[in-house]
Nucleic acid binder design. Structure first.
Ligand code: ZN
Ligand code: ZN
Ligand code: ZN
Ligand code: ZN
Lengths: 543, 543
DNA sequence: AAAAGAGGTCACAAGGTCAT
DNA sequence: ATGACCTTGTGACCTCTTTT
């Protein structure tokens, strides 16, 4: 019995350093925050699956929490037992989901239990690496079958056939004969393509005709799985080949993030639909835009992207605002500055101190390390055991960090993330706790983080959806409620320019390398078409 | 037990010339060696069974020659009576075994006598020709039964049926209508396939229905044996059809071997695990890689391959380094040149002279003959009476040698091999003799070949494992010692990239042959076939 | 009945075609 | 030159028939 050794993910920087802070201690040190945005952008508990079991007991009894209830339509009540994850701040969860998914869900299909239409659409788009489709062992395109002994796409099959029929010899590689062969670039270097074909075992002697023996199918499947893992690695690695390019891209994205965040400080007016407030959506969008600029971030699956972003917006905001150019460490950042409320009974007054400490530690790092650290914060926001793509990505980022930042960030990074995560968890717990003990005349976001306004102008109201139950679109059973959410998300999506959709997950590094359309164009017979040509056996024009 | 009648192997060049050298003579002529690698890569006695009884008599008198004792941890002592074969350099034996097998040894199976897991894996790969399955008389694939008067596989059965049903006429053969029909290429020439079908007696009139009387089965079995022998021949012959291709492949492999050997000269440090030294493993790997590039070498059984390589590494090194491009006959090859120690009491000082003489003779041969000669050295390293595959292979190689090198190499070759074999035997005897009297402060390789350092830089230490008892994984009974070896071999395997799987000549591309243990058994069980194959004396692995 | 081959079936791959 | 389709086999399984 041959055991397939799992491709061990090498964890570059092991977080062996322990946290230096204990969030359970108390104190009373008021402190100005340069991080006011944090008070408006929250995220969910880190491990949502672990908190599955026990939803808060008080949830179902929620009375009228808010005085200014903008519109009760924004607060659909969904029975707890239908909710898979009892996260509180479902508004942002849903908003992030919408912003990431960015494709209009199709209502007509989403009713059915298995969510046939929507789910398959979304899944098919980028789950080709992990799910059932077989990939070409040469270029990781979709394989059309088992050709010359390996799974190969039509392109590689034809290429190899031509190569061996007329014993073609190609011009030598312009590089070191190590070109990564992917769908996008498989036509750039014939030499390396043929080399890869031979390397994966293509051979005229290995042809297999006829029906596939059933006993071999399972083995083929295993083989294919390994290839998929490899192609995922390649897909990620190829986008980190050029270090300076990576750094430039990340720096630009980070600067954009910071400037966007600085511009969109403002109050949330409770008398308007909160979704229309730029104060809420723009920062979210900025964080997502930044994440999308992380090289190869769009190569990982959409579900993972959503999950990662839902768990890392806090961290991104913290890192971005702590090193903001206009307010490097000074409390000038919030126009109406906020400070933690040390009077709040349940608030931990050490929190401001901790935030300040974290900010200081961040600022002591070399400036070029910050964007990478922020990217890492996104990519390892949560441990996702069933998918290693984020780990591959964060490993790449750690490597970049080591190259540009030296050893110091590598050492500081893990403990820094640990502390940020602790802070995030405290924050989330606070959020949950507040939503469970509603008060009359409750001023949401004062309690939410134990904040109070120092300057009484510009009251900041959290949107009521903040306290809504989660609106996970895949688990909703009531269509009316669901469509409501869908409407919201569509409004969000419509407000923002539609990001380019990631075509079929893996092999599309978005704007990096545009695949030149070679060969005959596919006729593209969409499968849900009418049966116009189904009944007739051959609608061929030659007959 | 059924013995396969050996088809008389025609010995092309009969080694009628007698050896010109007598290794028992003595002398004292120091000599530089251009063959320093030989001092580090040894192999076992040629005929292990014959040298079983009497180690050299002078062995017991060796005094303490060496001062530096390497770490004794590498010298596990196993009682002599546990060792089936008294070969000394078991380290290399085991290493070769590991490198050839190239699959991680499976401890759980190798304990049992029949070696259920590992052996069956190995056997299945290339012993299908000799074992109990009936082969198709047309293409040597596994026959599915008696079709149209002959044993045929499903493919040939269907092909013939189609041919006679719709009286198909195929396009004429592009060659001389002499294509060898084998499983791998049976679809390349329909013309010759049909011709072969008719040649072996396929006919619509020969159909036979119903149950087969047991009387006939014996006769069928004999028929099958002939088919097996023929298929082995074909399998080898088909890989020697294209002479230029063969030559190109062999030349490339030989050049790779030489350059690899030249690069990995260096000392072996006794303070490190010798297995991690490239100086030891890389040359071994290079020799094996060269052998694997010999056309049809991988078509012979794995056990034979191991045996041949274990007995021919010495010869390969000698041939490769004697004709090394960078040091053609000059002593520049070893960085710290070595010479034979004429002071050693038991050393035969004629040896350097002999090596020099052999090297000179090798270099007088046409250059294109050297790779083939080296391949022949591998393939007829030892006489293996129970299997004629190596003989078939070396016959092919002799034929190639005659074509490209003319008659001279054919005449010189046999005597050259005889002398090399004598040298090898002397060398092995020396090795054995040294290892049997371990001394404190023993310096292995000075004694091993009676060498001393002329220039004191770059001391060359043989790894102590050189003197270890054999580590044949199947015969070791002490698990602790065994695991030690296994650990070593795994480290070897891990250090080297796994060789590409060969899809060429071998009937099965290696990893595809593993039966999947998933779910229920394949629809067609293997067992009923065996009754047909052999009457009752089948040592099936399934029983 | 049981065994075993003839013939059929049809999932599948090699090779050709030709718009791109 | 490429690659999406197409045609032409191929052969693993299946059913059916014949024999013991
Ligand atoms: Zn491909
Ligand atoms: Zn290239
Ligand atoms: Zn056949
Ligand atoms: Zn032919």
């Amino acid at each position: 019995m041959i055991k397939i050794l799992s491709t061990k993910i090498l964890q570059l920087p092991d977080p062996h350093q322990s946290s230096i802070m204990d969030l359970s201690s108390t104190g009373s040190l008021p402190c100005h925050l340069p991080l006011s945005l944090l008070t408006n952008l929250q995220n969910s508990p880190t491990a949502s699956s672990s908190s599955f079991a026990s939803p808060p007991a008080t949830s179902s009894a929620a009375p009228a929490l808010l005085i200014h209830s903008p519109s009760s339509a924004f607060r659909p009540v969904i029975p707890r037992h239908l909710q898979p994850s009892p996260s509180v701040d479902t508004f942002y969860m849903s908003a992030i989901q919408s912003l990431v998914v960015q494709t209009a869900p199709e209502d007509q299909f989403s009713e059915m239990g298995a969510s046939e239409g929507t789910t398959s659409l979304v899944k098919d788009e980028n789950a080709s690496t992990s799910a059932g489709t077989i990939l070409c062992q040469v270029c990781s395109d979709k394989a059309s079958g088992f050709h010359y002994g390996v799974f190969a796409c039509e392109g590689c099959k034809g290429f190899f056939r031509r190569s061996i029929q007329q014993k073609l010899t190609y011009r030598a590689c312009t590089r070191v004969e190590d070109c990564l062969i992917l769908r996008n670039n498989r036509n750039r270097c014939q030499c390396c393509r043929l080399k890869k074909c031979l390397a994966v075992g293509m051979s005229r002697d290995a042809v297999r005709f006829g029906r596939v023996p059933k006993r071999e199918k399972a083995r083929m499947f295993e083989e294919m799985q390994k290839t998929n893992v490899q192609s995922q690695k390649d897909q990620i690695a190829i986008q980190y080949e050029n270090l300076s390019e990576v750094m430039h891209k990340m720096n630009q994205a980070f600067i954009t993030l910071q400037t966007t965040l600085e511009k969109c400080t403002g109050p949330i007016y409770s008398d308007r639909c909160p979704i229309t407030s730029n104060f809420i959506v723009i920062p979210l969008k900025a964080a997502i835009d930044f994440a999308n600029q992380i090289p190869a971030f769009l190569s990982i699956s959409q579900a993972d992207r959503v999950h990662l972003l839902q768990n890392s917006v806090f961290d991104v905001m913290l890192l971005a605002s702590a090193t903001s150019i206009t307010s490097p460490g000074s409390p000038q950042f919030p126009p109406g500055g906020l400070s933690y409320d040390q009077q709040s009974s349940t608030s931990n007054s050490l929190i401001p101190q901790i935030i300040q400490s974290i900010s200081d530690r961040i600022r002591q790092l070399p400036p070029q390390a910050i964007p990478i650290l922020t990217a890492i914060a996104v990519c390892q926001a949560d441990i996702m055991p069933d998918c290693q793509q984020p780990s591959l990505l964060s490993n790449q980022l750690w490597a970049v960090l080591g190259k540009v930042g030296g050893v110091n960030p590598l050492l500081i990074g893990p403990s820094l993330f640990k502390d940020i995560r602790s802070l995030r968890q405290w924050h989330n717990a606070r959020l949950r706790q507040v939503s469970q003990i509603p008060q009359p005349h409750f001023h949401p976001n004062q309690l939410l983080l134990g904040l109070q306004h120092q300057q009484q102008q510009q009251p900041v109201y959290l949107p009521p959806a903040f306290l809504s139950p989660p609106a996970s679109t895949s688990t909703l059973s009531q269509s009316s409620i669901k469509s409501e959410y869908i409407e919201r998300h569509q409004s969000i999506a419509a407000m923002l320019e539609r990001p380019r959709r990631i075509s079929t997950g893996v092999p599309e590094p978005l704007n990096l390398t545009l695949p030149p359309p070679l060969g005959r164009l596919p006729v593209k017979l969409e499968e849900p078409d009418e049966e116009l040509a189904v009944t007739e056996s051959k609608p061929s024009v030659f007959e």
